[in-house]
Amino acid sequence: MKLSRSLILDMSAGPVFHVALLFSAFLLFRGHNAPGGGFIGGLVAGAALVLRYVAGGADEVHRTVRVAPELMLGLGLALAVLTGVAPWLVGDQFLESAKLSVDLPLLGTVKTTTALPFDIGVYFVVVGLVLAVLRTIGGEE
């Protein structure tokens, strides 16, 4: 059985998808200070992908995100673990955090901690899981 599809969904999937993705990034970045973070951000992005799936099926998801889920999972995990390992280079403990201030082109100077790359890793893994689900369980008709 095919999930029902409406015209409105079809039309809004594109714009809504991009807004949701942006929102997920916003949640990811603000997570350290307000509700949000890598999980929640990743789950929102995942929900956006589901929307895309509802609109266009597994192929649509595949067209939207061309990265293989395995790779995305691997990268996310590697990023999180490497963030944990990095402190060893400066003689700190595994997973020890440091405060950072980064100059970004549009946003100016952003104060954050090394927890951010860690959270980004989390984000990727969550998105990777949703991708994997949609490609496999969602793939069969």
């Binding site: 997570g31 949000g36 901690t113 927890a115 959270d119």
Partner: peptide, 8 residues
């Protein structure tokens, strides 16, 4: 911890 959201 450098963050206000304790849970995060």
């Amino acid at each position: 911890g450098g963050g206000r959201n304790v849970v995060n």
